[in-house]
Design a protein around this nucleic acid. Structure first.
Lengths: 259, 259
DNA sequence: CGCGGTTTGTTCTCCCGTTCACAAACTCCT
DNA sequence: AGGAGTTTGTGAACGGGAGAACAAACCGCG
């Protein structure tokens, strides 16, 4: 059952007594955590349009999920709804924001100010959610000093100083792939414990450091897979040779025909 | 021959649509599809460094996954390895590429050429994987005509013509959130059946259309959640378990405890 | 004050994905 | 040729999440 925070389950005793050994806390399921920001966004949207109360059905529609799933997700946070009525938009919004941590201020550094880094530095969605970009770093001297969104690009060497000075816990990597691991190491050494990686590279980090990756081309490739599948299954469509680019793979063509 | 992959029962197939997974699709599991591009990238890396054969252990390390998981994933494609030896890098690379569909050419349009759109238009990772950007669209007349990566920005109204002319199946939305649904509708009406959405909005699409979303701020929020968790669990930190950090509102978390 | 209508919170079941463990298959060495 | 050593491919156990269904709780009304 994963004992919710203020769990006062009838059967105390037991369980959690284990000392440190447990690395992961039994908190909110990962899948739920990933959806909370979506709910938060949906609630903000409702709030902006003057709605002050909503049912799980309405909120689920706004967030694009199943209402049962939504209710179960919210139940991990606590009982913030009222049966027969629904949820108070502002109240729930605050509760989710608090649970995620966006009620506090998160200083962030971005490393690698190329095209993507520029876009990230100018992205308004960060600041409106408690993420404050405190430094932009780049190894290329030609970029240093340039002003991006009111912030100057600093030399990469200043990374330790800047991270410490601003108490940065979250770093964003938007460098080319070859530089990513080195940048990551420096960030971690400087004290960063959460990394958002846009470089197409696998990062290895010490225990206790979280990494999330966003790979633009991977998303497109996933779409391409399904697109290919659709084309193969739909005979009505033109295009797409049902005979895949032959030439190579003698046994491949044979193995794939779905017969 | 141990009956290789005749696990392919004739499938009603049909592309999954919408966020929730469609259990149909007798093909490769969604989770595996999402990892295939990672394996592809890892294989390309190995190939570039002159490696021509690798074991599942090595490839798994390069891709950042468990070797058992890797083998199981690959087994959905077929038996492309050699027991006691490993995998031929070039051969496996081609097989994965073919399965994903990146051996063919995928024309792509990008709608919304702001900061992020610029970055996407210039991203080299697309073209190197079979994705060819054939048009950039923006509704803002001031942007139209501007040259980005060798391509001119076209008025949004030309969307139907361009999609048809280039047989575009994949569209990328990088507009502000308010415009996203409208752009999506126009794309779908024009014939696009796969959409990559960068706008922070929930898109509703007809059955048969795939949508994947990338939300930059959501990723940061997920990191923030874990970061907050780490801070709470860390005894060296200021906060004590059970007590929420610093100046967060009294919130009545205690006062609200049901009953 | 009780009753009907409404909506939440939770339980239960099913399914997908991960991981383990091992037989099958291949190479190399004697 | 045969045996020892590797490594793949996969059957099976396991854990977690998704969805349906329902009891508990709340409101409004007569």
């Amino acid at each position: 059952m994963t004992t919710p925070r203020n769990a006062r389950t009838a059967a105390p005793a037991v369980g959690a007594a284990e000392p440190s050994a447990k690395p992961v806390e039994r908190g909110i399921p990962e899948a739920t955590v990933a959806r909370l920001p979506v709910y938060l966004r949906a609630l903000t949207g409702l709030s902006d349009t003057g709605v002050d109360t909503c049912s799980s059905e309405e909120l689920a529609a706004a967030a694009g999920v199943n209402s049962a799933k939504l209710r179960k997700d919210l139940s991990y946070l606590g009982s913030y709804g009222t049966r027969g009525v629904g949820y108070d938009v502002e109240y729930l919004r605050y509760q989710i924001a608090r649970e995620i941590g966006v009620t506090q201020d998160w200083p962030v550094v971005i490393v690698g100010i190329g095209n993507l880094g520029h876009a990230l530095a100018n992205y308004s969605g960060f600041s409106s959610r408690g993420f404050r970009i405190v430094a932009l770093l780049d190894a290329d001297p030609r970029r240093q000093g340039e002003d991006v969104g009111g912030l100057g690009i600093r030399p990469f060497e200043e990374i330790e100083r800047l991270v410490e000075e601003h108490h940065v816990a979250i770093g964003v990597i938007a460098t080319p792939a070859v530089a990513a691991q080195h940048v990551c190491d420096r960030l971690v050494a400087a004290g960063v414990t959460s990394i958002l990686n846009f470089a197409p590279a696998v990062l290895t980090v010490p225990h206790g450091v979280d990494v999330r990756k966003v790979d633009l081309s991977i998303e497109l490739q996933i779409l391409a897979y399904h697109e290919q599948r659709k084309a193969l299954a739909d005979p009505g469509s033109d295009a797409v040779p049902d005979a895949l680019p032959s030439g190579l793979a003698p046994l491949a063509a044979d193995g794939v025909v779905s017969r």
